[in-house]
Design a binder for these strands. Structure first.
Length: 331
DNA sequence: CTCGATCCCTGGACGC
DNA sequence: TGCGTCCAGGGATCGA
Protein backbone atom coordinates (compact mmCIF):
# COMPACT_ATOMS: atom_id res chain seq x y z
CA UNK A 1 0.00 0.00 0.00
CA UNK A 2 1.64 3.17 -1.13
CA UNK A 3 2.53 5.65 1.57
CA UNK A 4 5.22 8.29 1.55
CA UNK A 5 8.25 6.02 0.96
CA UNK A 6 6.50 4.03 -1.77
CA UNK A 7 5.25 7.16 -3.55
CA UNK A 8 8.71 8.72 -3.23
CA UNK A 9 10.25 5.59 -4.75
CA UNK A 10 7.81 5.62 -7.63
CA UNK A 11 8.14 9.37 -8.22
CA UNK A 12 11.94 9.12 -8.33
CA UNK A 13 11.68 6.28 -10.79
CA UNK A 14 9.33 8.20 -13.03
CA UNK A 15 11.47 11.32 -12.83
CA UNK A 16 14.30 9.16 -14.16
CA UNK A 17 12.33 7.38 -16.82
CA UNK A 18 9.65 9.72 -18.16
CA UNK A 19 10.57 13.32 -17.29
CA UNK A 20 11.13 15.20 -20.54
CA UNK A 21 8.89 12.91 -22.56
CA UNK A 22 5.92 14.23 -24.44
CA UNK A 23 2.44 12.78 -24.09
CA UNK A 24 1.09 12.09 -27.57
CA UNK A 25 -2.34 10.82 -26.63
CA UNK A 26 -4.47 9.67 -23.73
CA UNK A 27 -6.81 6.70 -23.44
CA UNK A 28 -9.22 6.51 -20.51
CA UNK A 29 -11.09 3.39 -19.56
CA UNK A 30 -12.75 3.41 -16.15
CA UNK A 31 -12.89 7.01 -14.98
CA UNK A 32 -14.80 7.02 -11.69
CA UNK A 33 -11.58 7.89 -9.80
CA UNK A 34 -10.77 10.84 -12.05
CA UNK A 35 -11.90 14.32 -10.98
CA UNK A 36 -12.60 15.59 -14.48
CA UNK A 37 -11.82 13.03 -17.20
CA UNK A 38 -12.67 15.44 -20.01
CA UNK A 39 -10.05 17.90 -18.78
CA UNK A 40 -7.40 15.19 -18.95
CA UNK A 41 -8.35 14.24 -22.49
CA UNK A 42 -8.35 17.89 -23.48
CA UNK A 43 -5.21 19.20 -21.74
CA UNK A 44 -2.63 16.41 -21.76
CA UNK A 45 -2.15 15.36 -25.38
CA UNK A 46 0.83 17.20 -26.85
CA UNK A 47 2.21 18.23 -23.48
CA UNK A 48 5.66 17.44 -22.16
CA UNK A 49 6.20 16.04 -18.64
CA UNK A 50 8.66 18.48 -17.12
CA UNK A 51 9.17 16.85 -13.74
CA UNK A 52 7.78 14.18 -11.46
CA UNK A 53 7.71 14.85 -7.74
CA UNK A 54 6.04 13.49 -4.68
CA UNK A 55 3.68 15.69 -2.68
CA UNK A 56 2.45 13.84 0.41
CA UNK A 57 1.01 10.64 -1.02
CA UNK A 58 0.46 12.28 -4.39
CA UNK A 59 2.65 12.18 -7.41
CA UNK A 60 2.78 15.47 -9.23
CA UNK A 61 3.49 15.16 -12.91
CA UNK A 62 4.35 18.74 -13.69
CA UNK A 63 3.63 19.77 -17.23
CA UNK A 64 5.88 21.99 -19.31
CA UNK A 65 4.32 25.16 -20.63
CA UNK A 66 2.26 24.82 -23.74
CA UNK A 67 5.01 26.59 -25.70
CA UNK A 68 7.15 23.64 -24.57
CA UNK A 69 9.58 25.53 -22.37
CA UNK A 70 10.78 23.25 -19.59
CA UNK A 71 11.82 26.38 -17.68
CA UNK A 72 9.84 27.06 -14.54
CA UNK A 73 8.83 23.56 -13.65
CA UNK A 74 12.25 22.07 -14.35
CA UNK A 75 13.85 24.59 -12.01
CA UNK A 76 11.43 23.89 -9.25
CA UNK A 77 13.31 21.23 -7.32
CA UNK A 78 15.15 23.67 -5.08
CA UNK A 79 12.03 25.72 -4.37
CA UNK A 80 10.23 22.63 -3.19
CA UNK A 81 12.79 21.81 -0.52
CA UNK A 82 11.18 24.18 1.95
CA UNK A 83 8.09 22.04 1.81
CA UNK A 84 5.67 24.70 0.64
CA UNK A 85 3.72 24.09 -2.54
CA UNK A 86 5.76 25.37 -5.38
CA UNK A 87 4.50 28.61 -6.84
CA UNK A 88 6.34 27.83 -10.06
CA UNK A 89 4.10 24.87 -10.80
CA UNK A 90 1.40 26.06 -13.14
CA UNK A 91 -0.12 22.83 -14.30
CA UNK A 92 0.12 19.28 -13.08
CA UNK A 93 -1.42 15.87 -13.20
CA UNK A 94 -2.03 14.72 -9.63
CA UNK A 95 -1.98 10.99 -9.13
CA UNK A 96 -2.93 9.35 -5.85
CA UNK A 97 -2.36 5.60 -5.78
CA UNK A 98 -4.94 4.82 -3.13
CA UNK A 99 -4.37 1.24 -1.99
CA UNK A 100 -3.54 -0.56 -5.19
CA UNK A 101 -2.66 2.09 -7.78
CA UNK A 102 0.47 2.00 -9.88
CA UNK A 103 1.85 4.25 -12.57
CA UNK A 104 4.67 2.89 -14.70
CA UNK A 105 6.04 3.00 -18.23
CA UNK A 106 5.63 -0.02 -20.49
CA UNK A 107 6.59 -0.77 -24.04
CA UNK A 108 3.60 -0.16 -26.27
CA UNK A 109 3.55 -3.72 -27.55
CA UNK A 110 3.40 -5.14 -24.02
CA UNK A 111 -0.15 -6.39 -23.38
CA UNK A 112 -2.33 -4.30 -21.10
CA UNK A 113 -2.40 -5.53 -17.53
CA UNK A 114 -5.81 -6.11 -16.00
CA UNK A 115 -7.32 -2.97 -14.45
CA UNK A 116 -5.35 -0.60 -16.64
CA UNK A 117 -7.60 2.44 -16.55
CA UNK A 118 -5.44 5.14 -18.11
CA UNK A 119 -2.79 5.03 -20.82
CA UNK A 120 -0.58 7.94 -21.80
CA UNK A 121 1.18 7.26 -25.10
CA UNK A 122 4.66 8.77 -24.94
CA UNK A 123 6.84 10.09 -27.76
CA UNK A 124 9.46 7.35 -27.41
CA UNK A 125 7.36 4.27 -28.11
CA UNK A 126 6.42 3.65 -24.51
CA UNK A 127 3.17 4.12 -22.63
CA UNK A 128 2.72 5.39 -19.11
CA UNK A 129 -0.03 3.19 -17.70
CA UNK A 130 -2.13 3.62 -14.58
CA UNK A 131 -3.46 0.42 -13.06
CA UNK A 132 -5.65 0.24 -9.97
CA UNK A 133 -7.81 -2.82 -9.20
CA UNK A 134 -9.69 -1.21 -6.32
CA UNK A 135 -9.82 2.27 -7.78
CA UNK A 136 -9.23 3.91 -4.41
CA UNK A 137 -6.78 6.16 -6.19
CA UNK A 138 -7.40 9.60 -7.60
CA UNK A 139 -6.31 11.41 -10.71
CA UNK A 140 -6.81 15.06 -11.53
CA UNK A 141 -5.53 17.64 -13.95
CA UNK A 142 -5.18 20.91 -12.05
CA UNK A 143 -3.82 24.30 -13.04
CA UNK A 144 -3.10 27.71 -11.58
CA UNK A 145 -5.03 28.73 -8.52
CA UNK A 146 -7.03 25.51 -8.45
CA UNK A 147 -3.78 23.57 -8.15
CA UNK A 148 -2.39 25.90 -5.48
CA UNK A 149 -5.59 25.73 -3.46
CA UNK A 150 -5.66 21.96 -3.67
CA UNK A 151 -2.08 21.61 -2.45
CA UNK A 152 -2.70 24.02 0.42
CA UNK A 153 -5.30 21.64 1.84
CA UNK A 154 -2.49 19.40 3.01
CA UNK A 155 -0.31 19.67 6.08
CA UNK A 156 3.46 19.63 6.50
CA UNK A 157 5.91 17.27 4.83
CA UNK A 158 6.87 14.73 7.53
CA UNK A 159 10.54 14.83 6.55
CA UNK A 160 10.70 18.63 6.69
CA UNK A 161 8.38 19.64 9.51
CA UNK A 162 10.09 21.16 12.53
CA UNK A 163 9.67 19.62 15.97
CA UNK A 164 8.02 22.85 17.14
CA UNK A 165 5.43 22.82 14.38
CA UNK A 166 4.72 19.12 14.83
CA UNK A 167 4.41 19.47 18.60
CA UNK A 168 2.08 22.43 18.22
CA UNK A 169 -0.25 20.57 15.86
CA UNK A 170 -0.31 17.37 17.90
CA UNK A 171 -0.51 18.79 21.40
CA UNK A 172 -3.33 21.20 20.64
CA UNK A 173 -5.66 18.38 19.66
CA UNK A 174 -7.84 16.01 21.62
CA UNK A 175 -7.80 13.51 18.76
CA UNK A 176 -5.87 10.28 19.17
CA UNK A 177 -2.28 10.37 18.06
CA UNK A 178 -2.88 7.65 15.48
CA UNK A 179 -5.70 9.71 13.97
CA UNK A 180 -3.45 12.77 13.86
CA UNK A 181 -0.62 10.90 12.16
CA UNK A 182 -3.02 9.67 9.49
CA UNK A 183 -4.68 13.07 9.03
CA UNK A 184 -3.25 14.46 5.80
CA UNK A 185 -4.11 18.00 6.95
CA UNK A 186 -1.66 17.58 9.82
CA UNK A 187 1.11 15.71 8.02
CA UNK A 188 1.00 14.73 4.38
CA UNK A 189 2.18 11.27 3.44
CA UNK A 190 1.96 9.11 6.57
CA UNK A 191 -0.25 6.03 6.30
CA UNK A 192 -1.12 3.10 8.48
CA UNK A 193 2.16 1.18 8.31
CA UNK A 194 4.49 4.05 9.15
CA UNK A 195 2.13 5.43 11.79
CA UNK A 196 2.18 2.11 13.66
CA UNK A 197 5.91 1.63 13.20
CA UNK A 198 6.81 5.08 14.50
CA UNK A 199 4.42 4.82 17.48
CA UNK A 200 6.02 1.52 18.48
CA UNK A 201 9.48 3.00 18.12
CA UNK A 202 8.55 5.97 20.32
CA UNK A 203 6.65 3.72 22.76
CA UNK A 204 3.41 5.64 22.39
CA UNK A 205 0.03 3.92 22.43
CA UNK A 206 -1.99 4.70 19.29
CA UNK A 207 -5.10 5.68 21.26
CA UNK A 208 -3.37 8.32 23.38
CA UNK A 209 -4.85 11.77 22.88
CA UNK A 210 -2.51 14.12 21.03
CA UNK A 211 -2.94 16.71 23.76
CA UNK A 212 -1.89 14.22 26.44
CA UNK A 213 1.57 13.68 24.98
CA UNK A 214 4.55 15.19 26.74
CA UNK A 215 6.78 17.40 24.66
CA UNK A 216 9.57 14.85 24.77
CA UNK A 217 7.21 12.13 23.61
CA UNK A 218 6.16 14.17 20.59
CA UNK A 219 9.78 14.93 19.78
CA UNK A 220 10.71 11.26 20.07
CA UNK A 221 7.79 10.37 17.83
CA UNK A 222 8.86 12.78 15.11
CA UNK A 223 12.47 11.56 15.28
CA UNK A 224 11.24 7.96 14.99
CA UNK A 225 8.92 8.79 12.12
CA UNK A 226 11.62 10.58 10.16
CA UNK A 227 14.21 7.88 10.74
CA UNK A 228 11.77 5.18 9.67
CA UNK A 229 10.63 7.07 6.58
CA UNK A 230 14.22 7.71 5.49
CA UNK A 231 15.17 4.09 6.01
CA UNK A 232 12.08 2.93 4.13
CA UNK A 233 12.88 5.24 1.20
CA UNK A 234 16.41 3.82 1.14
CA UNK A 235 14.91 0.36 0.90
CA UNK A 236 12.52 1.43 -1.84
CA UNK A 237 9.42 1.15 0.31
CA UNK A 238 7.38 -1.70 1.75
CA UNK A 239 5.75 -4.21 -0.56
CA UNK A 240 2.68 -5.50 1.28
CA UNK A 241 -0.11 -5.94 -1.21
CA UNK A 242 1.46 -5.51 -4.60
CA UNK A 243 3.55 -2.37 -4.48
CA UNK A 244 6.24 -2.26 -7.13
CA UNK A 245 8.29 0.71 -8.28
CA UNK A 246 8.43 2.20 -11.77
CA UNK A 247 10.71 -0.67 -12.84
CA UNK A 248 8.39 -3.31 -11.45
CA UNK A 249 10.69 -4.05 -8.51
CA UNK A 250 9.36 -4.69 -5.00
CA UNK A 251 10.52 -2.74 -1.97
CA UNK A 252 12.33 -4.35 0.96
CA UNK A 253 11.21 -2.39 4.00
CA UNK A 254 8.44 -4.83 4.96
CA UNK A 255 11.22 -7.05 6.32
CA UNK A 256 11.95 -4.37 8.90
CA UNK A 257 8.43 -3.89 10.21
CA UNK A 258 8.41 -4.15 13.99
CA UNK A 259 4.66 -4.26 14.62
CA UNK A 260 2.73 -3.86 11.38
CA UNK A 261 1.31 -7.24 10.36
CA UNK A 262 2.81 -8.91 13.45
CA UNK A 263 -0.34 -9.46 15.53
CA UNK A 264 0.19 -12.41 17.88
CA UNK A 265 3.97 -12.38 17.42
CA UNK A 266 6.53 -11.29 20.00
CA UNK A 267 7.58 -7.71 20.53
CA UNK A 268 11.22 -7.38 19.44
CA UNK A 269 11.88 -5.16 22.44
CA UNK A 270 10.18 -6.88 25.37
CA UNK A 271 8.84 -10.20 24.11
CA UNK A 272 5.19 -9.40 24.87
CA UNK A 273 2.56 -10.37 22.31
CA UNK A 274 1.78 -7.75 19.69
CA UNK A 275 -1.88 -6.71 19.73
CA UNK A 276 -4.16 -5.25 17.12
CA UNK A 277 -7.05 -2.89 17.79
CA UNK A 278 -9.06 -0.52 15.64
CA UNK A 279 -8.16 3.15 16.01
CA UNK A 280 -9.31 5.79 13.58
CA UNK A 281 -11.11 3.00 11.76
CA UNK A 282 -7.81 1.33 10.94
CA UNK A 283 -5.93 -1.71 12.20
CA UNK A 284 -3.44 -0.53 14.76
CA UNK A 285 -0.62 -2.83 15.80
CA UNK A 286 1.19 -2.19 19.04
CA UNK A 287 2.95 -3.73 22.00
CA UNK A 288 0.70 -3.58 25.07
CA UNK A 289 3.73 -3.53 27.38
CA UNK A 290 6.01 -1.03 25.61
CA UNK A 291 3.13 1.22 24.60
CA UNK A 292 1.06 1.94 27.67
CA UNK A 293 -2.64 2.40 27.17
CA UNK A 294 -4.14 5.77 28.03
CA UNK A 295 -5.93 5.91 31.35
CA UNK A 296 -9.57 5.11 30.91
CA UNK A 297 -12.16 7.69 31.69
CA UNK A 298 -15.26 5.66 32.47
CA UNK A 299 -17.77 5.76 29.67
CA UNK A 300 -15.51 7.82 27.44
CA UNK A 301 -14.70 7.17 23.83
CA UNK A 302 -11.19 6.09 24.70
CA UNK A 303 -12.49 3.35 26.94
CA UNK A 304 -14.71 2.14 24.12
CA UNK A 305 -11.74 2.01 21.77
CA UNK A 306 -9.82 -0.09 24.25
CA UNK A 307 -12.57 -2.65 24.06
CA UNK A 308 -12.84 -2.65 20.31
CA UNK A 309 -11.08 -5.53 18.68
CA UNK A 310 -11.04 -6.26 14.98
CA UNK A 311 -12.96 -9.50 15.32
CA UNK A 312 -15.77 -10.53 17.59
CA UNK A 313 -18.97 -8.77 18.44
CA UNK A 314 -18.68 -6.36 15.53
CA UNK A 315 -18.94 -9.15 12.99
CA UNK A 316 -22.56 -9.86 13.83
CA UNK A 317 -23.41 -6.21 13.41
CA UNK A 318 -21.74 -6.11 10.01
CA UNK A 319 -23.65 -9.14 8.83
CA UNK A 320 -26.91 -7.49 9.78
CA UNK A 321 -25.93 -4.30 7.98
CA UNK A 322 -24.99 -6.17 4.86
CA UNK A 323 -28.30 -7.98 4.73
CA UNK A 324 -30.05 -4.66 5.10
CA UNK A 325 -28.17 -3.20 2.16
CA UNK A 326 -28.92 -6.15 -0.07
CA UNK A 327 -32.60 -5.84 0.75
CA UNK A 328 -32.75 -2.12 0.13
CA UNK A 329 -30.86 -2.34 -3.14
CA UNK A 330 -33.36 -4.87 -4.41
CA UNK A 331 -36.36 -2.85 -3.39
C1' DC B 1 -15.55 23.44 14.39
C1' DT B 2 -13.97 18.32 15.69
C1' DC B 3 -14.39 13.53 15.68
C1' DG B 4 -16.00 8.87 14.65
C1' DA B 5 -18.57 5.73 11.60
C1' DT B 6 -19.64 4.26 7.13
C1' DC B 7 -18.94 3.47 2.45
C1' DC B 8 -16.49 2.90 -1.89
C1' DC B 9 -13.81 -1.27 -4.52
C1' DT B 10 -11.61 -5.95 -5.70
C1' DG B 11 -8.44 -9.86 -4.98
C1' DG B 12 -7.15 -13.04 -1.88
C1' DA B 13 -7.83 -15.81 2.10
C1' DC B 14 -10.65 -18.80 4.44
C1' DG B 15 -14.52 -22.00 5.65
C1' DC B 16 -17.63 -25.39 4.36
C1' DT C 1 -13.25 -27.22 -6.82
C1' DG C 2 -16.36 -23.95 -6.04
C1' DC C 3 -19.11 -20.85 -3.79
C1' DG C 4 -20.05 -17.46 -0.14
C1' DT C 5 -18.14 -14.39 3.09
C1' DC C 6 -14.89 -11.44 5.16
C1' DC C 7 -11.08 -8.44 5.13
C1' DA C 8 -7.55 -4.95 3.82
C1' DG C 9 -7.50 0.53 3.90
C1' DG C 10 -7.17 6.20 2.03
C1' DG C 11 -10.17 9.38 1.97
C1' DA C 12 -14.94 11.53 1.05
C1' DT C 13 -18.94 12.26 3.36
C1' DC C 14 -22.27 12.52 6.85
C1' DG C 15 -24.08 13.12 11.36
C1' DA C 16 -23.45 13.92 16.27
Amino acid sequence: MPELPEVETLARGLQESVAGRRILSVTLRKTDFIDDPVAIERELPGRRIARVERFGKFMLLQLANKNDALGAAADSAAADRNGTPNAAIQEALLVHLGMTGNLAPHHAEQPLAKHTHVTFVLDDGRELRYTDPRRFGRMAYLAGETLTTELLRFGAEPLLVTAEEFARRVRSSRARIKTLLLDQRVLRGVGNIYADESLWSARIHPARAGGSLKLEEVEALLRALQRILRKAIQMRGSSISDFVDADGVEGDYQQHHKVYGREGEKCFRCGATIKRIIVAGRSSHFCPVCQRAPRRKSGSGVAAVEMRTPRGARVEKKKAKRKMRLRTSKG
